[in-house]
């Protein structure tokens, strides 16, 4: 395994009874990279994190974190990774300051040793440092959790759905913070169910049901969408969806926010489609070409499985 990769995953497999949570996943995270793991619930993201943070044992394949094997050198890995689980798991009955001091102590450092690393984040919650962690708001809890995961200056940081259940503004702020940490040379593996957050990462892996669909830069992934894509709008949206799916030349049609996204085949004529639909009695039908996003790629790859 290459020493210059922060995380190397090769054919990693984990089963829970009959369920295969992780099915031969392979990818690499480079040093200083902000790597996104994107997929819906049940894609195996949390299982992957628990494997890489040595909380569970793999059934197959191998992986290395910071150059250390997750099976053999788990003790060494625990010294050099930071983990922020999806669920808030600090001590709710200890204050902000006490939680931070406690986790620092477990790694044998003091808050002042690495204060400059966490300072930009910690300053935001410092006014509440005597407040019990359980009484903080969601956004502040998340910042505290990040501070606690960083206090020993880990070389690799694992963040399991850090932005789930957080408001849009705080989500933006949080990604800003991760960007700053990246500049400090910390390698990060972040999972998220939100496709729109993928653009914040250097590279992303799309995964579904324990398998990897593809790994690339966000732009690279989008550019792999090679079919014409249109947004379809009209009055009877549900009826439109059902009828359009039956039309010749339509590869796929799926709801996408306010409109439907429509994937056409080679030489697809949108004007003919509008004409057809209007003849069937649909009113106000409009079709316009749109740029594909990561979600479109995800849906396409998923249907190709």
């Amino acid at each position: 395994m290459e020493m210059n990769e922060a995380v190397v995953v090769e054919g990693l497999t984990k089963r829970y009874g009959a369920l295969t949570a992780l099915d031969g996943m392979s990818f690499c995270v480079g040093r200083g990279e902000l790597f996104g793991l994107i997929g819906p619930d049940g894609a195996g993201k949390t299982t992957l994190f628990r494997l890489l943070t040595t909380l569970i044992d793999a059934d197959g394949g191998r992986a290395a974190v910071d150059g250390f094997d997750i099976r053999k050198d788990y003790r060494l890995i625990r010294k050099r990774v930071g983990y922020m689980p999806g669920r808030f798991s600090l001590y709710p009955d200890l204050s902000v300051e006490e939680n931070l001091a406690f986790f620092a102590a477990l790694f044998g450092v003091s808050i002042s040793d690495n204060y400059e690393l966490i300072a930009p984040i910690y300053r935001q919650i410092e006014p509440f440092r005597t407040r019990r962690a359980g009484k903080l708001s969601g956004g502040m809890k998340q910042k505290l959790a990040l501070c606690c995961a960083l206090i020993h200056r880990p070389s690799v940081l694992f963040l399991d759905e850090p932005t789930t259940g957080v408001d849009a503004v705080s989500r933006g702020e949080f990604w800003e913070m991760l960007g700053q940490l990246k500049n400090r040379g910390i390698s990060m593996l972040v999972s998220t169910p939100y496709m729109d957050e993928a653009t914040r990462c250097d590279r992303v892996a799309l995964c579904n049901e324990g398998r990897l669909l593809g790994v690339d830069t966000p732009q690279g992934i989008v550019s792999r969408f090679d079919a014409p894509l249109y947004a379809l709008e009209g009055e009877n949206m549900y009826g439109l969806l059902l009828e359009t799916r039956k039309m010749p030349g339509v590869v796929a049609c799926y709801p996408f926010g306010e409109s439907h996204h429509l994937v056409g085949c080679e030489g697809f004529d949108p004007h003919r489609l509008v004409g057809e639909l209007e003849r069937m009695g649909f009113c106000g039908v409009s079709v316009r070409a749109v740029e594909p996003g990561i979600e479109d790629v995800f849906i396409k790859w998923m249907s190709h499985e």
């Binding site: 943070t53 040595t54 909380l55 003790r75 625990r78 010294k79 990774v81 983990y83 689980p85 669920r87 808030f88 798991s89 600090l90 001590y91 709710p92 986790f103 477990l106 790694f107 044998g108 606690c148």
Partner: peptide, 11 residues
């Protein structure tokens, strides 16, 4: 509370 996980990833 899940705090044990947080302890388990420490040395």
């Amino acid at each position: 509370t899940g705090t044990i996980e947080q302890i388990n990833v420490t040395p």
